[in-house]
Design a protein around this nucleic acid. Structure first.
Length: 863
RNA sequence: GCGAGAGUGGCGGAAUUGGCAGACGCGCCAGACUUAGGAUCUGGUGGGCAACCGUGGGGGUUCAACUCCCCCCUCUCGCACCA
């Protein structure tokens, strides 16, 4: 140990092993045999550079993939690029770089970055959604959905940004404004393609109960999004007309309490039924509500309920009572039928509305044993209770009366059972260039004609003038637009909208199972073998959109006979955000960490304030570039820290001291092995047998660590505690080192030490694979670590001769005794009562109770 | 408002089934080795002089509560006129 130990040089180690993996095709998946496991991380949009969120996401996935490989699973662990999208178009508009060039350069750069992280991907399966090889199948799937009636076109109202001259997805509208330019978003009527996701609403909802491997909150969000309501549709006949207003209600039990009717101001009946003398007022009101809706709806309950009387009346189908019809601002045209029966006594909104406009309140449900007085009510009574003022239904419990009332309505032909969803069909048309062309041709004679399969892919042309103005960029590409009708051969025009990029990502996990298939989007056999994804990992921001769309596609493709599974992702892990404290200069605002070295602003030298921890974002400048960290500390340290600092599903607080700590730990592992290399590689593996003293302890610690690390990864995915237990084993090994002095490689001590050191090297492999490979090869192995079998613990080694039992007196620890494992209560009691320390607290008092939890604790109650 | 999650040392976090609160790491303190150390190794580190007190606050169950029950406070996220 006298000579200087070789330093831990992460740079040369990491580049050597990355080259080794690359040339050796290390993580190429062997097809279709054995116990499979599909690990998938959400593929990135190729923005140009990876960020810490990616680092965390892929580190988590890589731990699982490498661990399971060592566990003997046939692991599929692919990577690709969600590479269509608006940023590429913006780059073209702002910097004149063609979107394809920009995207492919970004992919090349990010691929290099990912390879520098040492991730165990099967790169031979890489896909990019912007390539014709991929989007051909997007188009093919579109056509299959079209044939089944699951893709259709209709005119509908969409979010429109007048400045960018394009449609925006709902998620791209922030508080009623365009996320890019901040213009107020308008509603515009356009012809749009839709996918009929609502056809699967019930199954999507039902199957949320069959996903025990998903976080509850994601399931809850999806259930809310789908928003199923069970109730009835009821016709309220208009007075003096044959027509009826159709309403949807979940509370048919309150129908006898209807005192007015509320229509959405944009409901088609509003114009039709309003009496001439009220026309002006109603029209003004409708215009006002429309204007407010444009500037984003003011949130919920505190918004004032407003409305106007249309002058018309309708008739309660069960009582025949005359009911005035109002237009009201809180009724949404998009939900249900756009018309609501108003029951002020039992609905809070209707109650407020009735109070404001002096409309009658009629109680039809009383809480058990209470009689409500409409004049004294301060809020609606919305719970269930006992029916009153409801004719033959009086006295029934209101819950049960729902069915009876619907039955009665159905008998009279005035209503029927009905289910309503909040979920809308998925509008997939985008007036954008950088996306998958929708494979449809419009012919004056034949109408809407799908592009025949033989003509796929419809290639996205490259010579397109992008200005960011006007309609779809493709509409100006004459070579693209002008074509002939596949049916009649006459001149025809192509669809110029492209698909929402969420379409691309709704089935990429299936493509990975046979990424080079040239006859189908994916092979049925391969999908049958690999699907479902066993572990999917990604950010919570995709809780609804992507994950719901992917579930829908999986079901729709199943019904097309392309595969046989119901749900794409068996287990879902939603990682937390990567955060860092913000740094501010009183003069120059937010500063990048590099601009605040030594606590002073690099521009003006004023002291900076270090603020609260927030999600890393460019706008707040609290970002850390993974490239810099990897260069400075290495990929192993970067990965290790991102896994050690917090459990995966929690937010991670990035701090550089912590990174240094992880680097120090790897240095410690390095020295543990390298300083004792001759001894370890010279010693024979410990084969078992009886051990004493510190050797026995180290042996036990080794196996306890193996057990803990294995279970933490496998059962809990708590990598932070797995890593901390490896640290403990390393610490224990250092403590053991002095006993090695003067002992040869043949000694028991050397052999037990070898066991511990080798366990450390194998156990850190999923977290820090490069250093693990390097040390493992130095220890003399010809087999790389990733092909090694994951170590197994020996139960016998975990057994202890004696266990230290804390002894509590009246709940406070007053002493400790050592007993044999499994000792009887009587035996333990004897030892405890003869213990000097314990005696001090017990002497002269009566022991009222003696509790012994085997091998855990003693507690005595004395008085 | 509704739904979900969280609140533990100076900091990140641990305690998996009700059984020694604070593992592991950061930071800090001390010592060793060194020409030197911001390297490395070793030890210490919740508060309090102590009895004791300590897991957001208050109550309860229990021999025993971070953990279970009731009430309250704070924060984060999601949904938010859904009829």
């Amino acid at each position: 140990m006298a000579e200087k130990t070789e330093k831990y040089d992460h740079k040369s180690i990491e580049s050597r092993w990355q080259a080794e993996w690359e040339t050796g095709g290390a993580f190429r998946t062997t097809e279709g045999h054995g116990d499979k496991y599909y690990v998938l991380e959400m593929f990135p949009y190729p923005s140009g550079k990876i960020h810490m969120g990616h680092v965390r996401n892929y580190s988590i996935g890589d731990v699982l993939a490498r661990f399971l490989m060592m566990k003997g699973k046939n692991v599929l662990h692919p990577m690709g690029w969600d590479s269509f999208g608006l940023p590429a178009e913006n780059a073209a508009i702002q910097h004149g770089i063609p979107p394809a060039k920009w995207t492919h350069e970004n992919i090349a750069n990010m691929r290099t970055q990912l390879k520098r992280m040492g991730l165990s991907y099967d790169w031979s399966r890489e896909v990019a959604t912007c390539t014709p090889e991929y989007y051909k199948w997007n188009q093919w799937l579109f056509l299959r959905l079209f044939e089944k009636g699951l893709a259709y076109k209709k005119r509908s109202s969409v979010n429109w940004c007048p400045e960018c001259a394009t449609v925006l997805a709902n998620e791209q509208v922030e508080d009623g404004e365009c996320w890019r330019c901040g213009s107020v978003v308008e509603m515009k009527e356009l012809d749009q393609w839709f996918f009929k996701i609502t056809a699967y609403a019930d199954e999507l909802l039902e199957h949320t109960n069959k996903l025990p491997g998903w976080p509850e909150r994601v399931l809850t969000m999806q259930r809310n999004w789908i928003g199923k309501s069970v109730g009835a549709e009821v016709d309220f006949k208009l007075e003096g007309s044959d027509e009826a207003i159709k309403i949807f209600t979940t509370r048919p039990d309150t129908i006898f309490g209807v005192t007015f009717m509320s229509l959405a101001p944009s409901h088609p009946f509003v114009e039709k039924i309003t009496t001439p003398e009220r026309k002006k007022e109603v029209a003004e009101f409708a215009a006002k509500v429309k204007a407010e809706a444009k500037a984003s709806r003011p949130g919920a309950d505190e918004a004032e309920k407003e409305g106007v009387f249309t002058g018309a009346y309708c008739l309660n189908p069960l009582t025949g009572e005359r009911v005035p019809v109002y237009a009201a601002n809180f009724v949404l045209m998009e939900y249900g039928t756009g018309a609501v029966m108003a029951v002020p006594a039992h609905d809070q909104r209707d109650f407020e509305f009735a109070k404001k406009y002096g409309l009658p309140i009629k109680v039809v449900i009383n809480p058990a044993g209470v009689e409500l007085d409409p004049l004294k009510m301060e809020a609606a009574f919305v719970d269930s209770g006992v029916m009153v003022n409801s004719g033959k239904f009086d006295g029934l419990p209101s819950d049960g009366a729902k069915d009876a009332i619907i039955d009665s309505l159905e008998e009279q032909g005035k209503g029927k059972r009905s289910i309503t969803y909040r979920l809308r069909d998925w509008g997939i048309s985008r007036q954008r260039y950088w996306g998958c062309p929708i494979p449809v041709i419009y012919c004056d004679k034949c109408g809407t004609v799908p592009v025949p399969d033989a003509n796929l892919p419809v290639i996205l042309p490259e010579n397109v003038n992008l200005t960011g103005k006007g309609l779809s960029p493709l509409a100006g590409a004459d070579d693209f637009v002008n074509t002939v009708c596949p049916r009649c051969g006459n001149k025809a025009r192509r669809e110029t909208d492209t698909m929402d990029t969420f379409v691309d990502s709704s089935w990429y996990f299936l493509r990975y199972t046979s990424p080079r298939n040239e006859t189908l989007p994916f092979g049925k056999d391969e999908a049958g073998y690999w699907m479902p994804v066993d572990q999917y990992i990604g950010g919570i921001e995709h809780a609804v959109m992507h994950l719901l769309y992917a579930r829908f596609f999986t079901k729709a493709l199943r019904d097309l006979g392309l595969h046989e599974i119901d749900e794409p992702f068996r287990n879902l892990l939603t990682q937390g955000m990567v955060c860092k404290e913000i740094t501010k200069c009183p003069e120059h605002g937010y500063l990048y960490p590099e601009e605040a070295a030594g606590g002073k602003c690099s521009i003006c030298s004023k002291p900076v304030s270090v603020g609260p921890v927030e999600k890393m974002s460019k706008s707040k400048k609290n970002v850390i570039d993974p490239d810099r960290i990897i260069k400075e500390y290495g990929a192993d340290t970067t990965r290790l820290f991102s896994l050690f600092a917090a459990p995966p599903e929690k937010d991670l607080d990035w701090n550089e001291e912590g990174v240094e700590g992880s680097y120090r730990f790897l240095g410690r592992v390095w020295r543990l092995v390298v300083e004792n290399l001759d001894l370890i590689s010279g010693a024979k593996a410990w084969q078992g047998g009886s051990l004493e003293g510190s050797s026995r302890e180290l042996h036990g610690a080794t196996h306890r660590t193996i057990k803990k690390v294995t279970q933490d990864i496998e059962e809990r995915q708590h990598f932070n505690t797995a890593i901390s237990s490896i640290m403990e084993l390393v610490n224990a090994s250092y403590q053991f080192m002095p006993t090695l002095n003067g002992k040869g490689a043949g000694s028991v001590e050397a052999r037990v030490f070898k066991e511990a050191a080798e366990a450390v090297v194998l156990l850190i492999a999923p977290f820090a694979p490069h250093i693990s490979e390097e040390l493992w090869s130095r220890l003399g192995s010809n087999v790389p670590v990733y092909k090694m079998k994951w170590p197994e613990w020996i139960e016998d080694a975990l057994k202890l001769d004696e266990i230290e039992i804390p002894v509590q007196v009246n709940g406070k620890v007053r002493g400790r005794v050592r007993v044999a494992p499994g000792a009887s209560e009587a035996a333990v009691k004897e030892v405890v009562l003869s213990d000097a320390k314990v005696k001090e607290f017990v002497e002269g008092k009566e022991i009222k109770k003696f509790v012994y939890v085997t091998d855990k604790i003693v507690n005595m109650v004395v008085a």
